[in-house]
Design a protein around this nucleic acid. Structure first.
Length: 479
DNA sequence: TGAAATGTTGGGGCG
DNA sequence: ACGCCCCAACATTTC
């Protein structure tokens, strides 16, 4: 790396000051390093709801990052505006010779970064990007023929083979912190100043920032060995709840993977697999940017004639389908911005194969609501459920919302939390309340169709319609 | 990281 | 004792 007098680190989805590739490389190669984050209006202007949990998560995490950099003698400049302009302007203003950032793989980000690189080059400022948010880069895990994988299992095997101590090594940022530029940046703009209002994030008890990420991981480490068994039951504290921290880089992926790998055992291996799924979908999106444009991975499924009934869609969104597990899951999403992973699969299958609604509608709704939303993983998950994706489930594989409920929330604990109006039903009744006799309904003062919706569709009927739709609707390519 | 339909087997009730 | 039927339990195939 060339030696620089002054450099700038542009933080994006890597909001931490340890084990940070770009920050490390910048500090190592320059005498004075400035730090910048931009609330990018190109992204924020698209958010309809100005009470957005993600923006608040970022905001809180930035506060901590700024304080941490200050405690090391530096500071964090936080701006609000068009990132592709502001980064260049700020670099010129500060008189830096280079800008450092970590690579982002979403098509919009790739385009933005190419633009920034070009503008910087015109001003004779270098632009360096690094691998940081993934374990392996888009082109590091390839088949024997040098092509990207499209199936998870062989990808995972190749990935695991390469996952050694060198890859998992932390960047020792703290060795070079004395190279942080001594300057004082303006205070963080308030939520109001960037055009947003506060959400109920603090009530959700979701710890933010680096400290939040590490605290969650400390807690999860003790549960990791049980992950394999616990992860499927939404009423059980099984997952790590780190997805949002991975999204914004308030935790280091290398630190997580290294810990899991060293721990070993079935639970840690299963969890490590989930981290590898994340890498898998990043590289899939990079190699297939059409996925970001609403295209199916499998082109023959691009034009499936979904009826797309708006009333059914709205019932799904609100959690008023009459299927308790579906409703509980959707209400969890609406109330907290999070949904248990098992339930993401169940509600996705229900939307597509019971309500016969285009998976893109569900994908968009998740994009709006999920605090841990990530384009690649969200698209991958939806296309998996809709059977249109790479390595997706076969189209005739359809979840039964009642069976799933009995299997994974047998005692109805999760359902009762989010659908309290049916809390009084027995463990048996709660999965399909419409089967209760009218006498029983009156006894509980819980009339189906009045106090809780009757099922908006019949699963057996819709299942057959879905099978027909997929059988007849896929386009066979002409010879 | 399914579920339904269909097929097979075997125990027990019963004439 | 035996054959027959029923059906649960399990296995296989089909979607």
């Amino acid at each position: 790396m060339t030696h620089y007098k002054k450099s700038l680190v542009w933080f994006r989805r890597d909001l931490r000051d340890y084990d940070h590739a770009a920050l490390y490389e910048a500090l190592k190669s320059a005498e004075e390093v400035f730090c910048l984050f931009v609330f990018d209006t190109e992204i924020l202007d698209q958010l309809q709801d100005k009470a957005d949990r993600r923006v608040e998560f970022i905001w809180e995490s930035l506060q901590e990052l700024k304080a941490a950099l200050q405690s090391h003698g530096g500071d964090l400049i936080v701006l609000n505006g068009l990132a592709r302009e502001l980064v260049v302007q700020e670099a010129i203003k500060l008189g830096v010779e280079a800008v450092f950032s970590n690579r982002d793989y979403e098509p919009n980000a790739v385009a933005r970064d190419a633009d920034v690189a070009e503008k910087l080059a015109k001003n004779n400022i270098d632009f360096h990007q690094f691998k940081d948010q993934v374990l392996f880069e888009k082109d590091e895990v390839l088949t024997q023929q040098g092509k990207p994988y499209g199936v998870f299992t062989p990808y995972k095997n190749a990935h695991l083979k390469m996952l050694d101590d060198f890859v998992l090594q932390a960047y020792p940022v703290d060795q070079y912190l004395q190279h942080l530029a001594r300057y004082q940046a303006p205070p963080l703009p308030s939520m109001a100043e960037i055009g947003f209002t506060n959400t109920n994030l603090s009530q959700m008890k979701l710890p933010t920032g680096m400290s939040g990420g590490l605290a969650l991981f400390e807690d999860f480490k003790e549960r990791m060995q049980h992950y394999q068994d616990a992860r499927n039951f939404p009423a059980v504290k099984g997952p790590s709840y780190l997805s949002v921290h991975l999204r914004f880089g308030t935790i280091s992926i290398r630190h997580l993977a290294k810990t899991a790998k060293n721990m070993g055992g079935a639970g840690a291996e299963t969890w490590l697999n989930e981290l590898i799924w994340r890498d898998f979908y990043f590289q899939i999106l990079y190699h297939h940017p059409k996925l970001a444009l609403g295209k199916a991975y499998k082109a023959e499924f691009d034009g499936l004639p979904f009826p797309n009934d708006r009333t059914l869609f709205e019932a799904w969104c609100k959690g008023e389908t009459g299927y308790p597990l579906i409703d509980a899951a959707m209400r969890q999403l609406n109330q907290t911005g999070y949904m248990h992973n098992r339930l993401r699969m169940v509600v996705a299958s229900f939307l597509v194969k019971d309500l016969l609604i285009d998976w893109r509608w569900g994908e968009r709704y998740f994009e709006e609501k999920l605090i841990d939303f990530d384009l690649s993983a969200n698209n991958g998950g939806w296309q998996w459920a809709a059977s249109t994706g790479c390595d997706a489930q076969p189209w005739f594989r359809i979840f039964n919302p009642i069976t799933q409920s009995e299997k994974f929330d047998g005692k109805g604990k999760f359902i009762r939390k989010y659908v309290p109006e049916i809390a009084a039903l027995s463990d048996k009744e709660i999965h399909a309340p419409w089967l209760m006799s009218s006498i029983r309904q009156e006894e509980l003062n819980m009339l189906i169709g009045k106090n809780y919706p009757a099922p908006i569709v019949d699963h057996a009927t819709q299942r057959n319609l879905a099978l027909d739709l997929y059988k007849n609707g896929s386009q066979t390519l002409m010879e």
